[in-house]
Design a protein around this nucleic acid. Structure first.
Length: 467
RNA sequence: GGCGACGUAGCCAAGUGGUAAGGCAGGGGUCUGCAAAACCCCUAUGCCCCGGUUCGAAUCCGGGCGUCGCCUCCA
């Protein structure tokens, strides 16, 4: 198992901290606005990583937080004239709904900052006691970057090289411009929590150090998030955790590339994010999911509607095959043909692709090659065996990658009866060679959003919204 | 200015030293009342450019060109 670590900048063999267990902390979202497509990428990636480790026999502990208190949420609440809690709840629910539609398994713990204020305060106090942080007369607490010799090694930068002026906020009583807030005092009209330094709220980075160690311990296996979080968020988090525990928190830092549009990063602040909810209303969630997995996670993914549709057309072939073979029995004969041997060893190749730094693109390619082997089996007169393997292998791929759509929108019984009646009328017409009627029925159904396909096994109706 | 990533067929994309996976589109075919679907076959002497290392380079090194990201909230 080879995994790329952002800290060492190389792919290297991975050994879990505790044999047989995998612990994962992924930075979640700040729920102050609608989720966009960019949020779906790490979620789907970590979902696959998790399923992969589970399949490999590990016990997985996965934590993903919600930053439910933050300046942006406060501002949003004031805009909408509702409470900070209501804003956070609304967008957390929206995010969770989108994840469900993408078949993303929920994390084992989804802690919130507002439920961890006391441990956060204890953590900050200890950092002050250790001389790693200091409180100001204004009631703010800052982390003392100068006390962290390794600071900058995750993001590969030196504090003094950074563009001057950008980080420095007005009227600072910070000791050093690079020092960052652990605790920020709240104004009278802002939400706040009591603390030894007065009423205030946690800074952006401290939550993750606190919650990760609280739920997973001082050290854990993976820390994940978008590549844009490396600096300052993860750099600061690393510094805090190290200052507190004396060890580097994550054994491996995994950062996904960003989703762009026209090569420009999709982000909330640029306002060019594609609404995840709207996109999921428009395309099949599982087609979107496979599209996200079609590019290696560390590469940027330049979103295009065309590319998504291309992927959608491809994965539909796998769905169709599953429809055809889902009732097949388990294969009972063992054959020496190459296709049969490949079908038997399909899962090994699937997992081997993921062993190599979670290469989901290669894993998807394995699925298509497997589909071709099934066709070869059919052509060589062993359809039953081939179908049996097809069923097993597609389900195995689905278990790890998540590729099959959940049942399409349920239809009413009346609906089905009506369709069946029209189809049998058309079949009668066809038998009587009355193709005028037959074609007329096809046109009428097509106008209603249904496509009839005459297959060797009889007519089949596909609803346009299913694809 | 500092740091980093990327550049593979018409499009998307895997491949990090051994002779270019996969998907979409396109062409040809099988099947079919027609259509669609499905399936089969074909489609990069070449991987941004120029040098170098090597028996051998898309892969390693050097130099360019182009695009993007981080340094401010960001997945």
């Amino acid at each position: 198992m080879m995994i790329y670590d952002s800290l060492t900048r190389q792919k290297r063999p991975f050994e879990p901290l505790v044999p047989g267990h995998i612990s994962i902390y992924v930075c979640g979202v700040t729920p102050y606005a609608e989720s966009h497509l960019g949020h779906a990428r790490p979620a789907v990636l970590w979902d696959v990583i998790k399923r992969y480790f589970i399949r490999r026999g590990y016990i997985v502990h996965h934590v993903q937080n919600f930053t439910d208190i933050d300046d942006k949420i406060v501002a949003r609440a004031q805009d909408l004239g509702i409470s900070v809690t209501d804003v956070a709840e609304r967008y957390m629910k929206e995010y969770t709904d989108a994840m469900n539609r993408l078949r993303v398994l929920p994390p084992d713990y989804a802690p919130r900052v507002t439920e961890n204020v006391t441990p956060i305060n204890q953590f900050i106090e200890e950092l002050i006691n250790k001389g790693k942080a200091y409180a100001t007369s204004a009631g703010d607490v800052y982390f003392r970057v100068g006390q962290s010799p390794g600071y900058g090694r995750l993001s590969g930068r030196q504090v003094e090289d950074q563009r001057v002026g950008v980080r420095i906020e007005s009227s600072e009583d910070k000791e050093h411009p690079a020092d960052f807030a652990l605790w920020k005092s709240s104004g009278a009209d802002e939400p706040g929590f009591p603390s030894p330094w007065g009423r205030g709220r946690p800074g952006w980075h401290i939550e993750c150090s606190v919650m990760a160690s609280r739920y997973l311990g001082p050290q854990f296996d993976f820390h994940g998030g978008g590549i844009d979080l490396i600096f300052p968020h993860h750099e600061n988090e690393l510094a805090q955790s190290e200052a507190y525990w004396g060890v580097s928190p994550a054994r491996c830092w995994v950062h996904n590339g960003l989703i762009t549009q026209g090569s420009i990063k999709m982000s909330k602040s640029l306002g060019n994010g594609i609404s995840l909810r709207e996109l999921l209303d428009r395309v099949s969630p599982m087609a979107l999911r496979t599209y996200l997995l079609s590019v290696h996670y560390r590469s940027p993914l330049d979103f295009s509607q065309d590319a998504l549709e291309d992927w959608s057309r491809g994965i539909v072939r796998v769905w169709d095959m599953y429809e055809r073979v889902k009732d097949a029995g388990s294969p009972s004969e063992r054959l020496d043909q190459p296709w049969a041997k490949r079908l038997e060893s399909f899962e090994e190749r699937l997992l081997a692709a993921l062993d190599d730094d979670f290469n989901t693109a290669r894993a998807l390619a394995e699925i298509y090659e497997m589909v071709r082997d099934v066709h070869q089996g059919e052509a060589s007169g062993h359809a039953e065996t081939a179908h049996g393997w097809a069923r097993i292998n597609i389900l195995k791929a689905d278990q790890v990658l998540g590729i099959l759509p959940w049942p399409a929108t349920p239809r009413s019984l009346e609906h089905d009866k009506l369709l069946a009646a029209l189809l049998s009328w058309r079949q009668e017409a066809r038998l009587e060679k009355d193709f005028k009627i037959a074609d007329r029925i096809r046109v009428v159904l097509s106008q209603a959003g249904w496509t009839i396909e005459d297959t060797p096994r009889g007519p089949r109706v596909v609803a346009k919204e299913d694809v």
